[in-house]
Computed example of a mutant assay.
Amino acid sequence: MTATAVAEPPARFSDLLASEWLKLWSLRSTVWSYVLATLVVVGFNAGAAYDRYRHWTDNNTADRASFVADGIALMYAFTTNAGTIMMLAAGAIGAVAITGEYSTGLIRTTFAAVPARRGVMAAKVCVLATVMTVYGAVTAAVSFWLSQAILAGHDAGVSIADPGSLRVVVASALLAPVCGLVGMALGAVLRHGGTSVVSAVAVLLVVPLVLTDDRHWAAVLDHAQVSGAWMRLVDVRYDAGGPGVPFPWTMGGAWTVFALWAVGAAVVTVLATHRRDQ
């Protein structure tokens, strides 16, 4: 009597999502990475707000009135330093999320169990994007609430209902998943932890530093960067048509840059491993 082999049914995408979710949280370092990154970013924002609160009386009455009238408090809701730290942390976490499997060899086991590589990578993208979005939302919301609560001690804080507040919070929250997906895409292409993290830092932070907005070509390249788009969305002093901005651009353009980086990184991640040996 000959035994008949029973073909295994293909893995459902929901199963792949569950598998990637378990992989992500199976390491204790994952939780601590998110907790530490949140504390550092919130700490930077709260520290800047407290410093402004502490030295409030150093400025004259006109400057204090201008601070309130111009909504400068929003710049303390998510500072440039905090944004830099978030980009660094999110890019590194995204890169390690995939290169960790290459370094341990687990990626071979994964692809042996599920030959549909694109499905596996798509699941990784979905899980990372979801977790990073939650992380970004919590960090941005806590930073906004804490910084404005500190400044409210001098009646200088703003509420989430004030013009521009929600935009700053949403843009800062989405900075995390966008940078995380960029890091993951680099990890999928380079497949080495250290190289991928360094490349993420270079793409997200170093390249924008060498670009300026005093030449048209440089301004266009700067506007196409993740950091440039984020700055356009959160800097309340930026007037798209005002003086001092040689090559202005719109908030719609900045949101488009965010979307293109996220979608492009996701596509690269899904396609990068399709025909490559592991």
Rank of each mutant, 00 (worst) to 15 (best):
N60F: 10
D51S: 02
G105E: 01
G164M: 08
T84M: 11
M86W: 13
R117H: 01
V267Q: 03
R191Q: 04
D70V: 06
A112C: 01
A161D: 07
T110P: 01
V201F: 05
G244Q: 09
A137E: 00
A37T: 08
A149M: 07
F258K: 00
P243V: 01
M121S: 14
V142N: 02
Y76T: 07
P243F: 04
S19R: 13
G244V: 14
P246I: 04
K124N: 15
F247I: 06
N45Q: 10
T57W: 06
V35W: 11
A218W: 09
G193T: 15
T57Y: 14
V206Q: 11
A141G: 04
M184I: 01
V236R: 01
A89E: 05
R276L: 05
M1W: 13
V257R: 08
V210P: 02
V6C: 12
D70L: 15
M251T: 11
A229I: 14
R12L: 10
D277Q: 04
A254F: 00
L146F: 07
G91P: 08
V125W: 15
A5K: 13
T30I: 11
R117S: 01
R232V: 13
V131D: 03
I85K: 13
V6G: 13
L211D: 09
V127R: 06
L27A: 15
T38V: 13
C179Y: 00
T269N: 00
L221F: 09
A218V: 01
S143R: 01
T30F: 09
V234N: 03
G136M: 11
P163N: 05
Y76Q: 12
Y238V: 08
A116L: 01
A259K: 05
F247S: 00
P10W: 08
G157R: 08
M87W: 15
V210Y: 08
V120Q: 11
T250G: 14
V169N: 13
V158P: 08
I72E: 14
I72W: 11
S66A: 14
G83I: 13
W249F: 10
V201C: 04
R215C: 09
A266L: 04
H274E: 06
A173K: 12
R52C: 05
G164W: 05
I98N: 00
L174Y: 00
F144A: 06
W56C: 09
R167S: 12
A218F: 07
K23S: 02
V6D: 10
L209H: 12
W230A: 01
M75V: 05
H55M: 14
A224N: 08
P248R: 10
A73G: 10
A224D: 04
A188L: 10
